[in-house]
Nucleic acid binder design. Structure first.
Lengths: 231, 231
DNA sequence: ACCTGAACACCGTTCAAGT
DNA sequence: ACCTGAACACCGTTCAAGT
């Protein structure tokens, strides 16, 4: 929004930082060499001195987000104890932190999936998670499976086409009620589920689906299952 | 590849079918109004008579994939029995079928996550899954959570930046062994895990990570957990 | 060394025109 | 009705040129 004064010289970090900002604010589609350059107060071609091209920029975006998770995980761990933690609590915290970062950058999971090169930073995450699991008594085989289970879940939850924002209109008109009636005709179970969840949550609740609660439920489902497999 | 003779008149279905083909063959980036039109033997502007624009095309792509899952699920169910199946087997089959379709169209999950409008076809899926769950004794509350758990998992697994294709070079040179040694320095647990999995799988296995097996493991983890919550 | 302007081959989309 | 050609505002990227 505000014109960038930008007296600092350009750098890979500054370019990537501005690109993340742009993607957060206007979506990944707005991240254009030309628009990004304009946001930095520079011409498009200047970016090529710091990144080989658009592909490298996108890979850099992924790396930046992955790195952000590292920082957030370290910050969360710093507040905790000195290591008496068990694997379960450690991984739970890590997944919640990763989710927070993904929610800040909702374009990130889709971008990760579409890149062919796998970002170097994720190996560092895998290593940390493996250390926790092996320290908790996991075999490498079971740890491998845990890695997939938890990783796919963190990525997938951001992708879900569910829980649209509650209608922003006047609450008195209650267009949702009319929608529900129409929906009940053709999608009876879905309508009943939404009605039931709304009723249980009370009128005060905005929307009927708290995706953070759903995320934690699924996360615990996986952690429970892994703990049981561990024996 | 082959020039399209295309004497049939254009239609929304034909356009979307060609778009899916193009995305499968060359990636979502290749799906361009102009290139899609060329594949259909027509000019770019002709597409606008069947779809309002690029956004509608992308939404249509998602709908097409979602519809494909429907067809595949029905086909898989037709081979089975007449309904004596329990919820677990039914959902397991459904998730495996959905995964098959996603693997055929690896661009689909990322596209779904990036679209703001939620495709109408997914409601039909939710309805079918809910019917199965409620028929199996689930409350709407628990069924809601199952919906999120299973849905995010199917989407997330395709997104995972793991299990790169095995190196295509000569197997005798074994560059993987050298990579492993270098990796062991900085990522000891990860290197040990890969080495352990390769050893267990035997030399004959291509790559060290069978993502289908990993998927089914995670799927069963979730189904087990849901069955336990059901009581 | 870092940045730029002009240029090229591509986009999505509009619009007036063809049949 | 369905399709088209020319045009407009945008892309990523190259290259020779500036400082």
């Amino acid at each position: 929004m505000t014109a960038r004064t930008s007296r600092k010289p350009l750098s890979r970090e500054r370019v990537l930082g501005a690109a993340v900002e742009l993607a957060d604010a206007e979506g990944l589609g707005a991240v254009t060499m030309r628009r990004l350059a304009a946001a930095l107060g520079v011409e498009a071609m200047s970016l090529y001195h710091h990144l080989p091209g658009k592909d490298a920029l996108l890979d850099g975006l992924v790396d930046t987000v992955v790195g952000e998770i590292d920082v957030a995980v370290d910050a969360a761990a710093a507040g905790g104890d000195g290591g008496a933690d068990d694997w379960r609590a450690t991984l739970r915290r890590r997944c919640l932190t990763a989710r927070e970062v993904m929610l800040r950058h909702p374009w990130a999971p889709g971008l990760m999936g579409s890149r062919s090169a796998i970002p170097a930073g994720v190996y560092v995450h895998y290593e940390a998670i493996l250390a926790t699991l092996v320290g908790g008594g996991f075999s490498y085989h079971l740890a491998h499976r845990a890695l997939h289970a938890l990783g796919s879940m963190v990525l997938g939850f951001v992708q879900e086409p569910f829980s649209p924002a509650p209608p922003a209109g006047a609450p008195e008109d209650d267009p949702a009620a009319a929608d529900l009636a129409a929906m009940a005709e053709v999608l009876p179970h879905l309508a009943a589920m939404v009605a039931s969840e709304i009723h249980d949550a009370g009128e005060a609740m905005l929307g009927w689906c708290d995706s953070q609660t759903e995320f934690e439920f699924t996360l615990d489902l996986l952690l429970d299952g892994l703990a049981r497999r561990l024996g």
